[in-house]
Nucleic acid binder design. Structure first.
Lengths: 216, 216
DNA sequence: GTCTATAGCAGGATAGAC
DNA sequence: GTCTATCCTGCTATAGAC
């Protein structure tokens, strides 16, 4: 650590690597491309991270996980304003945290592309994310939504409800360009807000299933 | 075409290429790997398809699109039994066609992994699928579901409803292993049926949104 | 149509100067 | 920590025999 530039090479590599991995996928990106974007030497990746695969894992450990934690915090903060949050609050907070939360549009796109990449072709990073982020989030989501579900909903139904909500959150992020293209250019402004609103309403009706007409 | 083996080399290459592309992604698969699996010569790919990229496109044109057509047919056949199918019938048919339809589990996994790969990193094939499969399906789905939605639902809401259903169909396929792992081994048998049932109920309540308590 | 052989190049990784 | 130079493997693609 003799050299103090604007930002450390190691950090620049992590940034550029994440952006490129998210954009093109692991195998489509070469070390040369990464170091080129990070304006550093080809050998730097192997010096700082050992090899390409480990750089990829460090992207998850040092960039992805902390960002996921920020999203989780944003979600938790929104719902912890009341001791017993309503289902509406819970789903709305979740949708906002993921679709319109603390991340920039760019960061959010990266974040979700990376994880969907792991969903399609899991590597070592997938296990990390499932255990450290996905399961805890699913658990607290189920707990928070319990109050909004019919009392006779069993554990499996509760889990599937939570999965369904996550499905929409993920998909609406991933297909944002497609959705825009289908909706046409007519409705550009505030689309995100309307997506969140739709997601919340759809989900709330969904989890209230078998319970229509009565409210918790 | 002098050589008549069990199956033509060209077809074997398409089969193996599709399986490998779905499993590992385009860039992670080499021509050597494909021709090895297809038990043919390395040069066969370039002879039959020109280059690797075009082989990938042919996989879509000659394998993916026809299979998508079979799924669509299965869906249409299920709902065309009555002149004006109920929303329940429509969603149920859709969910069954995609999650438990004419495709084998293996084929379905391939089919959806390929398309999610395109969702993440679109290539030329994406446009093909959007125009030839996705838009028509979305269109007919919206038309069929119109009757189940509140009359004051505008076009955008109708589209988002359809997207939400597709989101769950896609996601439940993609995350099938994850869902199983979260649900635990206790509930192996007939999981698919229960997934379909959940999806249908969740969606039907969802699209009836804004309509709770009163029925249109 | 299928095969061998090989051209030609891009990729990951490392050794060693600075 | 950073850089140059280089090794070597594995890749796509093609030319040409059969």
């Amino acid at each position: 650590m003799k050299n103090h530039r604007n930002e450390h090479t190691r950090e620049r590599i992590l940034d550029e690597a994440e952006a490129l991995f998210a954009l093109k996928g692991y195998h489509a990106v070469s070390i040369r491309e990464i170091t080129g974007a990070a304006r550093c030497n080809l050998a730097a990746v192997n010096y700082h991270f050992g090899n390409k695969q480990n750089l990829y894992l460090e992207v998850y450990r040092q960039r992805w996980l902390p960002r996921a934690e920020r999203v989780r915090q944003s979600f938790q903060n929104s719902i912890k304003t009341t001791p017993v949050p309503s289902a509406d609050t819970v789903v709305h907070s979740l949708a906002r945290a993921f679709l319109d939360g603390p991340l920039s549009n760019e960061a959010r796109r990266r974040h979700l592309r990376l994880i969907v990449g792991e969903l399609c072709q899991p590597t070592e990073a997938f296990e990390l994310v499932v255990e450290r982020v996905f399961r805890p989030l699913l658990g607290s989501l189920i707990a928070d939504l319990r109050t909004a579900m019919p009392v006779d909903v069993d554990e499996e139904q509760a889990i599937l409800n939570a999965f369904s909500i996550m499905a929409m959150v993920l998909y609406f992020n991933l297909s944002h360009p497609l959705i825009k293209s289908v909706l046409g250019t007519s409705s550009d402004n505030d689309l995100k807000t309307r997506l969140v609103d739709h997601l919340v309403e759809f989900s709330l009706n969904g989890i209230a299933g078998g319970n229509r007409g009565s409210d918790k």
